[in-house]
Amino acid sequence: MEKRELTCIGCPLGCQITVTMENGEVKDVAGYTCARGEKYAREEVTNPTRTVTSIVRVEGGNLAAVSVKTKEVIPKAKIFDILEEIKPVIVKAPVKIGDVIIPNVAGTGVDVVATKNIEAV
């Protein structure tokens, strides 16, 4: 039996939720106030996900960097792998919102896309 302590992010209440796990299975969820909280806790302990946002260097643009994000959420454990893959990338201006900067980043099946328009200069 393993207990995991979480802070719910659903609202300012920030419920302290305790999830009891056994062999990777959720046995009990306690401390939540609403259904959203319970759902969040179950997902957070079994498959925590995040959207990664960062920047990528640009050549020949009106700005030095373009902001990017993972188009979908990715497994939390992959965050730093994704950042490592983003790090060496340099793109050429122009860039448009939605342009794929890195397809299938870190083998997640998710693309890193631009979130800003950069004009070529």
Binding site: S67, T115, K116
Partner: peptide
């Protein structure tokens, strides 16, 4: 959305 996307 991200900030730049919202602005755009």
């Amino acid at each position: 959305l991200t900030g730049p996307e919202y602005a755009a």
